[in-house]
Simulated scan of single mutants.
Amino acid sequence: MCSALKNKLPTLCQTLFEAKAAKRLTFADIGKKIDKDEVWVAAVFYGQAKPEESDLKKLSVVLDVKENYLVYGYPLKAIINEKFGDGIMSAIDFTAKVEKIEKDDHERVKITFDGKFLPFKKW
């Protein structure tokens, strides 16, 4: 991949490409290992396809990348910035809660993150 394009991709995508290169795998190789089409795999690498949780686990193993690097951090950050402005959610003043709830006769998982918003300082 050309470096000009790589630099425009989110850090998550860059991490995937670096792991792919380190393992010397093709998109087809990865697809075979996780039972997915090579085009779908490439779309994930470019942030244009959303993998299921089970796919994330498989990608994590194949690429030797921690699974928590393959979750929804960037989309959540973008939404926080849209709603609050340029800044971050504090992990110092932070709580997380996982609940089991029933809805329409199905068990569901409800995850609540509660953190103080800290705007970036303008200088």
Rank of each mutant, 00 (worst) to 15 (best):
S3V: 15
K6C: 09
K6F: 12
N7E: 00
K8E: 08
P10S: 05
T11W: 12
L12Y: 07
C13H: 05
E18H: 05
A19R: 03
K20F: 06
K20G: 01
A21L: 12
A21E: 15
A22N: 14
R24S: 12
L25V: 02
A28Y: 02
D29G: 05
I30R: 00
G31A: 05
K33N: 07
I34Y: 12
D35P: 05
E38S: 09
E38G: 02
V39W: 05
W40Q: 13
V41L: 01
V44L: 00
Y46I: 06
K50P: 01
P51Q: 11
P51R: 14
E53F: 12
E53K: 09
S54E: 12
S54N: 05
K58C: 04
S60Y: 10
V62P: 10
L63W: 07
D64Q: 14
V65L: 15
V65K: 14
V65Q: 08
N68M: 11
V71S: 15
V71I: 15
V71Q: 13
I79P: 02
I80E: 13
K83V: 01
F84M: 13
G85I: 04
D86Y: 11
G87Y: 07
I88L: 13
M89D: 00
S90Y: 07
S90V: 03
A91W: 09
A91Q: 15
A91S: 15
I92R: 13
A96V: 00
E99H: 14
E102M: 10
D104G: 06
D104L: 00
R108L: 03
I111C: 14
I111M: 14
I111H: 07
F113L: 10
F113W: 06
K116T: 03
F117C: 08
F117K: 11
L118C: 10
K121Y: 04
